Simulated assay, not measured.
Amino acid sequence: MHVHRTDRITVIGGGFAGLTAAITAAEAGARVTVHEAHHTLGGRARTAEGPYRTNEGPHALYSGGPHWSWLRARDLVGPLATLPPLEAARFRLRHRGALRRTPPLAMLKLLRRGAGRAPVGTDFLGWATGVAGEEAARAAAHYAAVALFHHDPGSLSAAFVQERLRRATRLPPEAHYPRGGWGGLIDRMAARARDLGVRVETRSRVDTLPTDSPVVVATSLESARRLLGDPALTWPSGRTVLVDLAVRTRRGDAFVVSDLDAPGWLERFTAQDPSLAPAGEQLIQGQIPVAPHESRADGIRRAEELLDLGFPGWRERLTWRREAVANGRTGAVDPPGSDWRDRPAVDRGDGVHLAGDRTAAPGVLSEVSFNSARTAVSLALGRRGLDLDHAGG
C-alpha cells in the first residue's frame, strides 16, 4: 500500500480523457503532470496537419451529454462547422442495394416512444424484430453502427443499441463538428490545462507507475492492461476499416451514405467544413465495421460499393486516398446481460484510476471518456461531489 499526496495527480495519456482529467484536477487545486508517449497530444482525437485534415475515423461531438456543457462553459468547443440546408438534404441510405432518401417505414417504429425501453438482457435484433419485424430491425441495427463501430450491432444488448440509435437519429441532430477538425478542440483543451499550471510532457512513455501520487491511466485499454499488469482489463470493442479519400468537387455528391444492408457509413466532411481539403476538392471519410474473420480488403470493397452509389465517377476524380484498420479503438460495446457498470472499474485500487472509452462510465462515444475521467479525478482527490454515477446510461 502506497501513501499518496492527494495534492498531486499524474495523468498517463494526453487524449480527450487525459486532458479532461488534467483540467478537472487542476481546477480542483491539484498539481498535475500529463505524460503522453506520442510527440503530440490528442490520441484518437488528433487531426492531421493537412492538406487533408482527417481525424482517425469520422468524429462528431454530441451535444446531449454532460461534456458538451462542460466544454462550452470553458469556451473549449470553439467555432462549429455549419451544414448548409442543401447539403443536409443529400443524406442517403442504402437499402436493398439501392440508394434511398428515407428509411423503411417500419424502422421508424423503433424510434417512437411507444417502442418502450429496450431490455439489457436481450439482443437488439431479437427485441427489435418483435417491435417492427426482422427487416426493419436489421436496418436499424446497421444504422446504429455510426455510434457503435461494430460488425454485428444486432447481437449486442438491446438497451445499449437503442440508446445509441435514438441519440444518432434525434432531431435536431446532436452531432456537431468543431471547425478544422477535433485537433482544434484538443489544442484548446491543452492550452486550458497549461494555463492552469498543468505540466505536459510529450514523448514521455511511462513503463512504471509513480508511487508518490494518485494516477489516472487515460490510455487505450490494451495499453492500460500492459502498464498495470492486469489481465482483467478487457472488454469487447469493434474492428473497423477506415477509408479516407479526396475527390474533385462535383455537384450532386451525397453528404452521407448510411448502409442499412450492412454496417457502414461514409460522410463528406467538407459539406460542412470546406477548410478540411484544398479548394475544389471534397474530403470523404468512411468507417466499415468488419467481423473477426473478415479482412481489410472486405471492408474496402464494401466502402467502394457505397462510394459507387453516393459519389458517381469518384475513381476518375480521386486526388488522395488512405486506408487503415482500427482494432479495439472504437469504444466499448455491451453484450446482452451487461451494461456500462460491468466494464472495467474506474477505481483500480491503491491510488490508480482508469479513464477511457471502455471503462465503467455512462454515455455515448466520447462521453464515456469524459465521465470516466471526471470520476477518476473525484476519487483520486476524495471529492465525491464530482462523481457522475447519477449520469445517464
Rank of each mutant, 00 (worst) to 15 (best):
V325P: 01
A291R: 15
E304L: 08
E294D: 11
L196Q: 06
S63V: 05
E305Q: 15
Y177V: 03
P104Y: 07
G299F: 08
D253Q: 12
F124H: 02
L125C: 10
D244N: 15
D389P: 02
D261M: 06
V198Y: 01
I288Y: 03
E222V: 04
L196R: 01
P278C: 05
L99C: 06
R179H: 11
T319I: 13
R101E: 14
R301F: 10
G393Q: 01
W127G: 03
A73M: 11
I9M: 02
A45W: 11
L99Q: 07
S213T: 14
G310N: 04
S155P: 13
W340F: 14
V243A: 07
V256N: 13
D273C: 06
T359Q: 07
R100Q: 15
P210W: 08
H353W: 15
V146F: 08
A137G: 10
R329S: 14
G385M: 01
A297H: 12
I288Q: 14
A132T: 01
S366E: 03
R53I: 09
P84N: 10
R166D: 10
F16D: 03
L233N: 01
A45M: 01
E201L: 15
E294F: 05
P85F: 02
G328L: 10
Y177T: 11
T202N: 06
A332E: 11
L86Q: 15
A89N: 10
A140P: 06
P335A: 04
L196S: 00
W340C: 05
A88K: 00
D347F: 07
S378T: 15
T122W: 09
L76P: 09
E267K: 14
L221S: 02
A21V: 11
T47K: 09
P289H: 03
V131D: 02
G382W: 11
S275F: 02
H4C: 05
P119T: 00
A279F: 07
S69P: 10
L156Y: 06
A246I: 03
P274D: 09
V3L: 15
T20Y: 06
M189V: 01
R248C: 08
A190E: 03
T33E: 13
R53Y: 06
R179L: 14
L228P: 10
D244V: 09
R117C: 12
R317P: 09
Y177E: 13
R100M: 07
V247D: 12
T249L: 12
A191W: 00
V243W: 04
D253E: 09
G183L: 00
T102H: 12
G184Q: 12
P336A: 04
H150S: 01
Y177D: 11
W235Y: 13
V217C: 04
A140R: 01
H150N: 00
V241Y: 05
D152V: 10
N55E: 14
A25I: 06
R179W: 08
V256Y: 05
A279N: 08
R53F: 02
V364E: 04
T249Y: 03
P292N: 10
